[in-house]
Structures are given as structure tokens and as C-alpha cells.
Design a protein around this nucleic acid. Structure first.
Lengths: 330, 330
DNA sequence: TTGTACGCGTTATCAT
DNA sequence: ATGATAACGCGTACAA
């Protein structure tokens, strides 16, 4: 069942069928109707591969993320997919895990499938020394990074102002008189580094010496966060505040502190990051920094659409975060 | 840059290049090397559209789900994508939301993009009266449903034994002497109905009259679940057990009961469903029924791969659930 | 307004 | 072992 069959049945040429199909060129109402009737009757669908071959696009965008089962990434992917579809693009999803080799392979695969662009979700794709995999992809198609950026041609970064958000939150705790404020984080990524810098900057701003700072790196899991806080308590360090790079770490911290008999937020204040659903599961509910995944995702897609339309777009866009106060802070 | 360029550079015909590329047919080591060198030098990648046109497949499978930002679906999508990739297939993701019209459109879109199969994630695609959208898709490609099934040609269902799991859990509560056991659920889907039936069957098994049963339907949100339980308490109904169709509802129930000063699990036991990360966020942590999303997803992909290989596959596969006891039950 | 004919880049079939 | 050539199904420039 192809365009020739339709043309034959309708008694016209394939050119006319094509015109009807794509609404281009002048076709008389009469023939258009006749062609449409045949198309409906035979339930004809144009072959996307042939069309792709001719037009050199199947209107697909690759979405690459390390792990969609993570709530934060899932929300981003969900939003990106929705916005792409709104603009007539399908989404080719690739979950890479954490291994560089896999990321490279996935990017190559997407490029080989001739996607029109790639959206990189999350700040886990840049490597310290070697970003050839991203640069290579950008050689073929525009690449938009959500929550990360890389200064190179054809690469666009949409990020959140994690630095400021963290600095303000920690600053506020300090202003309240808190000094023993722990920062719990999970990754050395672009946004990870900026959050950490924000934490440190808050101490600097208030003239506190670096030895006041307690930064602990742990796995992105409730369990490890919990263990780390328990470890502190056992060492006799009783935090007055815990700020984390991820809600999930805040959940772990809250658990540990509750188990140790601490009153939250009176004895200890806790602030998470992402304002994910996890923040609403605990009791008290977590205060959290909303880093605006949806806004970032929408902006990412808009950027892409603008690029397709050959409009001018900025290669880096920063969005403000928002502190959401709930039950774990005063 | 196409196969002709490679052929010219290597001084062979395109047929030979194609053979080298696909490892088919006999090519002498010597020419193979020469061709490979040119391919590497020019960083040539075959055009996927042209290949798709010829082979009538681009090795892509459509994944359709109502909402990837939902943890449960996200886990399923993540697993399906990974398994598909392991088998050489890419994933075209479609999130439909809850409107039938949109589901229909997405399915049509996937079919029009000539995917090799469709995986329907979650039991939100079947409608009471009209499943023409699924049947239509199945006319073109095999359709595998995760957590749902539909008895029709070319449609395969991978489900979890939600009925038994729920019945056993409720049964166990009854055996402990509990009578005022509330069932909180969010959807009338295939698995939703089976869970509810399991709840009811437990009462029947122990000779309890139907008026002992309290089934409350609510939105899939912490807030509404909380409200519903608060409503019960205000009416003077103090549950001894709350079983839910989703962890998120159990979270809401736990919140309401804690706020009302109930001791969990001593005054009230709570059991969630899915054994998602949410179950590990609360304090005490939620007991939950693990409905084996990953196993279902893996089985779904295996089924698909078997279908592609023309092996015999069963049109319905049921997997056993597993009760995970944590802090909200005895 | 409509039709003809070619190009898109493969794979596969048949010769050689 | 290798090459010429025909599909594959569409869009479109150009002709009518």
C-alpha cells in the first residue's frame, strides 16, 4: 500500500496525492476530496522511511539521560517529550547509565539514527577531561543540555542558578544563628559544584572561617545519607542544619536525625533540593529548593525549536531557583 | 557523504561496501580492509532512513505510557528501554496523559513512524467500551501490555497477580484480628479491579459480611488520600488497617493517621502497593506489595524479541507479587 | 491544476 | 569475489 495505489484508485498522479497529503500546492477541492476518500477507505499512511529519506528528517529528537527511573530525570524527560510532541517531534529515548563508554555509544546511535537534535538531561554527561562524545554529536546536530553547559559550537546549556539558591538558603540559616550546618552532596557535576560553591559562599559572606564548613559526599541514596549523618552524631558533631544537593539525601538525613531523637526543625533544620515528590512524603515535609526542572525543560525545547527556525538563541540560559519552605525549616 | 563516496574512494562498487558494512556475502580480507579504512577515514555512517526504507524497519519500538514522571511508570520505561537496547532496538517514547483521544493519536503516530512493536506501559489504555485504538495498532505491529491485558490477536499481556497479593495481605490482617480495614484506591483499571477484588475476596474467605468493607476511591495524590482518611476519622470511623492500591496513597494515609495521633503500626497498620522509593521515605517505612515492575518489563521485552524471532509466546503471562514487610505493619 | 521523471541512499538479486 | 542494477516510497522541479 503506497502512494501509487492511492493515485491509481483516485485516478490521479502521485504528485497530486502528495500535494493533498502535505497540503502544499494547488489542488482543486474536487480532486482533493476524491483523493482523501481513497486514503480514508484504504487507511493509507505514508511511509515514514521514504519520507525521511527524501526530506532527510523524521522529525525525531534524541533524549539522553543517565537514568529515567530517577524522579528528577523522569520529570525532565516527561516535560521535554511533551513539549517536543507539541512541536511535532517524536522522542527517541536513551538511558545510558553512568559509564562514559555507554554515553558515547548512545550518542553515536542517536546520531546514526539521524535525529534532528539531542537533548541531554542532567549534568552527568560532561567528563572532566574528555567531552569528545558530546562535541562529536554537536558536529552533526544541535545539542541542548539541561542542568549543564559546555562552551562549544552548537551546544546550548539551560541551567538553574543553583549557586545563588544554595547561598541564600545557607545564608539564611546562618543569619538565624546556626553555625553547624552540614552540606551533604552526591556528585561533582556542573550543578553539583555550583551548589557546593553556594554553600561555601554563604560562610564567606558572613565572615565564617572555612573550618566551620562540613561538606560530606555520599551516594545518591537514602541509606548512605542516613549513615553519614549517623556517623557525624557518633563523632559527637550535632548539626544544627543540614542542606543537601538532592531531596533523597535530605530524606536520609531526616531519618537519621529523627532516629537520634532530634526535633526537626527546632533542633535541626533540613533543606533538600529539587522539590520533588519525596519532599512531600516525609513528616515533617521537607523544605526544598525548587530548581525548576519543568521550566528548564520547556526552555530547552523552545531553544531547539528556535534553532530549527534559524532564530537567534543564547547558548546559555539561566533560570532562578525558588526556595520552598515546608516543615523542616523555620 | 554516502555509500557511493566510499565505493569511489576505495575503488570498489557500492555492493561491496554494503557487504563490508553488513558483514554479509564474501569479501576478501584485502578489500574489506581497504573499504574499512576509507569508512573510518571519512567517518561514514550509513543513512538510517535509506536503510529503513529498504529493510522496512529502523529497529525501533514505541513505548507508550500515560505519564513517565510517575515513579512506577518511570521504572517500567527505564527497564523496557534498557532491555530493548540490549536487543538492538531503540525506543520511541510517547506520553499520552489520560485523554483517550491523545492515546489514540499517539498510537497512530507510532504506527505511522513504522515502529516494529508497541509496548503499552500501565493499565490506563484500555477503555470500558472502546479499545479500537489498541486493536488498530495491533493490526500493524505486535503490542505488549505491561500490567494489563486484552484478549485479541497480536496483543500480549504481562501482568502481576495483584488479586492474590492483595487477598493475602488483607487476609493476614483479618487473621490478626483486624476488622476495620479500609481499602484506598485510585483507578478502575485492570489491575485496579483485581486489587479491589482481592481485598473483597479476603473478607469473603473469612466469612465477613460485605458491610465490613470500606472501599474508598480517591485521586492518585498524597493530598486526597490524606483528606479521605481524615474524612473517615471525622465521621468516627477509626480504621485498624489501611491497604492501598498505590504507595502514594499509603503515604497520604500515614500522614493523616499520624496527624490524628494514631500509632502506626500498633493502632493502625498500613500497606502500600508498588514498593517504590516512596515506601522508603516515610517514618516508619511503608510495608508494600512489590508488583515486580522490573520483572514485568523484562518479560515484556523478552516476549517481543521472541515474537520477532517467530517463536511461540503465550499471549498472557502472570507474575507473582511479593509482600515487603516494613514498619507500618506487624 | 495536474502529471512526468528524477533523486534520496540503502539492500538484494542477479550476472560475471 | 565483485559489479551493475532494480527495488523501496516519497517529495518536488519542471513540464504541460
Amino acid at each position: 500500500m503506497n502512494i501509487y495505489d492511492i493515485a491509481a484508485q483516485a485516478g490521479v498522479s502521485i504528485a497530486t496525492v502528495s500535494r493533498v497529503l502535505n497540503g502544499k500546492g494547488n489542488v482543486s477541492e474536487q480532486t482533493k476530496d476524491r483523493v482523501m476518500q481513497v486514503i480514508d477507505k484504504l487507511a493509507y499512511t505514508p511511509n515514514a522511511f521514504a519520507r525521511g529519506l527524501g526530506l532527510n528528517t523524521m522529525k525525531m529528537v534524541g533524549i539522553i539521560c543517565s537514568d529515567v527511573s530517577d524522579i528528577y530525570y523522569a520529570t525532565a524527560v516527561s516535560t521535554v517529550e511533551r513539549e517536543l510532541r507539541r512541536n511535532g517531534y517524536d522522542s527517541l529515548l536513551c538511558c545510558t547509565g553512568d559509564q562514559l563508554e555507554n554515553k558515547r555509544k548512545c550518542l553515536e546511535l542517536l546520531i546514526s539514527k539521524r535525529v534532528d537534535a539531542v537533548v541531554l538531561v542532567g549534568s552527568k554527561f560532561k567528563e572532566k577531561d574528555d567531552n569528545s562524545h558530546i562535541l562529536a554529536a554537536a558536529q552533526s546536530v544541535p545539542c541542548v543540555m539541561i542542568n549543564d553547559c559546555l562552551d562549544a559550537p552548537n551546544i546550548y546549556g539551560i541551567v538553574c542558578d543553583d549557586f545563588n539558591a544554595t547561598r541564600e538558603v545557607v545564608s539564611n540559616l546562618i543569619l538565624q544563628g546556626l553555625r553547624k550546618i552540614v552540606y551533604l552532596y552526591d556528585a561533582d557535576t556542573y550543578s553539583g559544584v555550583r551548589k557546593l560553591s553556594g554553600y561555601k559562599a554563604a560562610f564567606d559572606r558572613h565572615g565564617l572561617t572555612p573550618d566551620n564548613r562540613v561538606c560530606i559526599r555520599c551516594e545518591r541514596s537514602i541509606k548512605d545519607a542516613k549513615n553519614q549523618i549517623h556517623g557525624l552524631l557518633e563523632k559527637g558533631y550535632h548539626p544544627e542544619g543540614v542542606v543537601t544537593s538532592e531531596d533523597i539525601l535530605a530524606v536520609g538525613a531526616l531519618k537519621a536525625l529523627a532516629e537520634a531523637g532530634k526535633q526537626v526543625p527546632n533542633d535541626v533544620q533540613i533543606v533538600g533540593f529539587n522539590d520533588s515528590i519525596l519532599a512531600k512524603c516525609t513528616l515533617p515535609e521537607l523544605s526544598s529548593i525548587d530548581n525548576k526542572v519543568e521550566a528548564l525543560s520547556i526552555t530547552a525545547v523552545r531553544t531547539l525549536i528556535d534553532i530549527f527556525a534559524h532564530k537567534n538563541v543564547s547558548s546559555k540560559i539561566m533560570v532562578a531557583a525558588e526556595f520552598v519552605r515546608r516543615g523542616t525549616s523555620l
